[in-house]
Structures are given as C-alpha cells and as structure tokens.
C-alpha cells in the first residue's frame, strides 16, 4: 500500500517494549500508508499493538516502559524514523495532532481550557497571546461548543465528557496538523455524542484536508469513518484493504470472527451471541506459527509452524493466512 503521494508511510515497523517484568514484541513488520485527506483505521482488540504502534514512535509511552523501535517512517516526503534518524516526536503538536481516548487525562485539570489551546497556537503558529486567544475561541466554535469565549476561562471539570473531547479535538487541530492520530476518540462517550464527534471529525477533515489514523476496536465507528482499514492481531497486520474490502468481504478468519461478534440492530432477536473461542496469545512468549492458529476454525498443519505473510487477495486487499492461499489456489485450478 506504499505510494509516492502518501503523507505517512510506515514500513516494517517493529516495536519491542521493555518493562520491569517483561519484554513484549508489541508490533512486528507493520507496513501501511495514508494519503492527505484520507482516513486509515487500525482495528484490533486490547493487546493487539494498535495503540503502541502509533504512539511509541511519537515518544508517547506509559511511565516505566522503554521501547526499541526499528523500521522506517516517512512523513510528508521526509524520512523521520530509521537510518539513525528519529524526529517524529518533534512534529507532534504541529504537523501531527493526537487525540487520546480519555479526554479528562489528556487535559491538564488545573489549567483553563483557553490557555491549553492557546499554548499550541503560540508555540507552533507563532501567534501572540491575543491572536491565540481569538484562534482558540474560533476553534471551540468550529468543534461545536456553544458560547466559546466564555468557555475559554473554564476548567476541564466544568464540562461534560462530550464537551471535553471536543476541547481535546480543538487542541489537537489548533496548529492545523497534516495528520491527526485519533486513539479511540469516542470510546469514553455515549452513542449520541459519539455520532456528533464522528460527524465533526469528518467535517474538519474536509475543511483542512488532514489525514487521519483512527485507532479503534469499534467496528461501527470504523465503518463510518475509514477509507482503508488495517486489522491487527497479536502485534501484526493480518488484513489490510479498503473499508469495503475488509468489512464487506473479509478474508482473514480473525476479521471474519471479529465481524461476526459485533451485535447489530438486524441480528435476529434472542439469537445466541457469536464470538471467537479462546484468548489472544501472550506476546512476551515467542510465537512459532500464526498467532491466530489456536482460535482458528480453518487452521492447516502449516499454520502451527510458520508465520503466514501478507499476500494480496485482490488489488490493494491483502491478508496473512495460509488457509486463504490454499482456498484461492483450489479455486483457480
């Protein structure tokens, strides 16, 4: 999926995390790209590595955790990670905005909302305090906060969860970033507020043309926002393609199982719930074969001994599954 017009081009990214207790191979040979004005969703469950993959290169790690990062990242045509270079973090706040899952922890509780947004504008756009204040009010208005000038002097705790997440979005886009990394931006929110935030992100993307990397476990949110989707399992991308490819014609057995697990408003009433058996593997132990093998209903003998590579299904749609390849071969015979 690499292309010359990509704004963000990630190739072969490996992240290994070291904590006091363990060493975890959080992501392995991850390759993806996203163009300006487009949204790539990275989908996965907890522990799949989807968050670490995107936040570790920006220097955003939990306390007490260090990371070894290898691979290459190009941003806006420049090598920012790899070959001895590590400059992604310097783009954060300016060219790269980040929205975190929990809006309360992303804001400083002791500082007024206005000053937290103004800071971004002063630092990255070189605005005077007066211009930054006007800019901050403009941003709050843009994200749909009523009475924005009055809100500037309020503290985060004075706002509802939905309003706080709007403030976080306003701060993240204050420097008009080219790329927005949104980590579970609506997970802490109610469904009606979630709908408002998704619609807001879509409008902002249209207006300022930014690329979005949406990190989410929520297939419904992803279906409403993504142009392309990468599905992660146990630290690796197991399927990647356009939103329609991945969600309408899923190829990897994990993606299929995940989609079948999502209750929908047209599932028969009273039907038993469908999910996947078992648990994801422990990433602090070495894996011999396919990480999904134990939970997979179509696993072959080869799956236990070798790791399947990502192989094209059709066009830009690819999946990492031996069973698929065999089925495809059988179909062409």
């Amino acid at each position: 999926m690499s292309s010359s017009e990509a704004l963000l081009d990630v190739s072969n990214l490996d992240v290994t995390l070291h904590t006091e207790r363990a060493t975890v191979r959080a992501s392995r040979a991850v390759t993806y790209s996203v163009a300006a004005g487009r949204t790539l969703a990275i989908v996965g469950e907890s522990g799949s590595g989807k968050t670490i993959l995107n936040l570790a290169p920006l220097g955003l790690l939990p306390p007490g955790v260090t990371a070894d990062i290898t691979g290459e990242v190009r941003f806006d045509g420049k090598l920012v990670l790899g070959d001895g270079v590590n400059q992604i973090a310097s783009h954060r706040g300016k060219d790269i905005g980040v929205i975190f899952q929990d809006p309360l922890s992303a804001l400083n509780p002791a500082r007024r909302i206005g000053s937290q947004i103004m800071e971004v504008a002063e630092q990255h756009l070189g605005m005077t305090a007066r211009a930054a204040s006007a800019h901050a009010a403009e941003l709050l208005k843009m994200v749909g906060i009523p009475d924005p000038v009055a809100r500037l002097s309020q503290y985060p705790h004075e706002l509802s969860g939905g309003m706080r997440q709007r403030v976080v979005i306003a701060a993240a886009i204050a420097a008009e970033p080219k790329l927005l990394i949104a980590d579970e931006p609506t997970t802490a929110l109610d469904v009606t507020v979630q709908a408002q935030i998704i619609s807001l992100l879509r409008q902002l993307q249209k207006r300022i043309g930014m690329a979005i990397v949406l990190i989410s476990h929520d297939i419904g949110v992803v279906a409403g926002m993504a142009d392309a989707i990468a599905v992660m399992y146990a630290g690796a991308i197991v399927e990647i393609g356009s939103a329609d490819d991945v969600l309408v014609q899923p190829s990897h057995p994990y993606t299929r199982g995940l989609l079948a697990s999502v209750p929908r408003l047209d599932t028969p009433l009273g039907a038993p719930f469908r999910g996947l058996p078992g648990l994801p593997p422990d990433l602090s132990r070495p894996l011999k074969g396919c990480a999904f093998e134990e939970r997979c209903s179509v696993a072959l003998e080869a799956c236990g001994s070798a790791r399947p590579p990502l192989q094209p299904v059709a066009g830009t749609h690819a999946a990492a599954c031996f069973a698929n390849v065999r089925a495809a071969l059988a179909a062409t015979r």
């Binding site: 469904v191 709908a195 998704i198 279906a223 409403g224 969600l247 309408v248 999502v262």
Partner: peptide, 13 residues
C-alpha cells in the same frame, strides 16, 4: 438513540 448506533457495514454507513 437508535439512529446514533453505528452499523459495521460501510455501505450502509
């Protein structure tokens, strides 16, 4: 509330 529930099918969305 019901109208806000997202659907996992991008064509429907």
């Amino acid at each position: 509330l019901l109208s806000a529930v997202p659907d996992p099918d991008p064509r429907i969305e």
